[in-house]
């Protein structure tokens, strides 16, 4: 890739600039700063859409009562049951139980705190799906 061909397509990275290596006029490799490249931006958008779609499906399931608010926070943090189990220090089976409204209702104060801490939110916020979170 030549220096003049380095793409500058802004994407999802909030203006963060990365580095690529490209060949300058005299044939030497130099570092060139770039804002992104359209194919990658497209790939990232697809991945983002997939996460958003997933999130919407989960919110719908919470509304009809087949999942607990924990499912929302888990998906929002881009985790699956296995990873959340690792963070919470419990078994995957337990996490799955807590993802159901019945299991969620039986959570102790301490368990609630553990989950809230992982997501960087308050225990109150953990009960509400789609609250603003700050992790």
């Amino acid at each position: 890739m030549r220096e003049s061909e380095v793409p500058q397509d802004a994407g999802l990275f909030d203006g963060m600039r990365g580095l690529t290596y490209a060949v300058n006029k005299s044939g030497r490799y130099i570092q060139v700063s770039t804002e992104g490249w359209a194919p990658v931006n497209y790939a990232n958008e697809l991945a983002r859409e997939k996460l958003d779609l997933n999130l919407r499906l989960i919110l719908e399931k919470i509304r009809v009562g087949s999942l607990s608010p924990l499912a929302y926070h888990m998906a929002k943090a881009k985790m699956d049951e296995w990873l959340l189990a690792r963070y919470a220090g419990v078994s995957k089976r337990k996490v799955k139980r807590h993802l159901k409204p019945g299991g969620f209702a039986r959570l102790t104060e301490q368990q609630m705190k553990t989950y809230a801490e992982i997501f960087g939110i308050s225990v109150q916020a953990l009960r509400i799906p789609s609250s603003g979170q700050n992790v």
Binding site: M1, L19, W37, V40, A43, N44, A47
Partner: peptide, 14 residues
């Protein structure tokens, strides 16, 4: 598209 991401995402230098 995941192959594209692994190939080109920030961190590979292109």
């Amino acid at each position: 598209t995941n192959v594209i991401r692994m190939q080109e995402e920030i961190g590979t230098g292109g």
